[in-house]
Amino acid sequence: MGGWDRFVDTFFNAKVMEKYLPDILSGVVVTIELALLIVVSGLAAGLALALLRSLGVRPLNWLIVFVVDLFRSLPPLVIIVLMYFGLPYAGPSPSGFVSTWLSLALVLMAFSEEIFWAGITSIPRGQWEASRSTGLSYSQTLFNVILPQAFRLTIPPLTNRTIAITKGTALGTVVAVTEILGQASSAVSNSYNPSPLMMGAAAYIVLFLPVVVAARWIEAKFAWKR
């Protein structure tokens, strides 16, 4: 057997791949579920915090900034572990799935709040003034004039963050979530062969490429002629 054949036999072993394909696929389903939950709840919570912050209530803003800075500085793995192994001492004992979901959603909330906030504050004062001078209220101005412009600026950094954080679903392995990486690594130990890991890698690419493409499409849709 030559070097190349041995490489293929080790990393792309057809027999192993066939055997563990169903496991990897079920991992893909779990990862998709987790990712969707994280993206929807994390971005919604981040936007909600940014809108609350725009009201300019001092004590509330201190609290928001504190929470946001906390979840931006803690490593996601630490949050997952604390939630899964620590929270039960305080009462609720979330499953590994729920712990991973909530932890990563909190991290995405923190980062996306900062991004939305930067978008809102980057819109010139004159836009607020023009809108308010025609009688639109604060919230009408925010939703009709400010946010549509702010969103356009936030899409590229938001996409980056969203992808980075949803890839963190792999951290769920440590709390026994059977997502792609968890399935792949247990298949690796059972088969003494790293081929399932390659399948896992392929699954991540298949999963996240459409997200990048969708982001580019949204970006183009929100653009306006200058």
Binding site: P124, A130, S131, T134, Q149, R226
Partner: peptide, 15 residues
């Protein structure tokens, strides 16, 4: 404010 129109130096149209 509906009764008071205002025109700004920098136009401030919604882009």
């Amino acid at each position: 404010r509906q009764r008071i129109g205002m025109v700004f130096q920098s136009f401030n149209l919604y882009p």
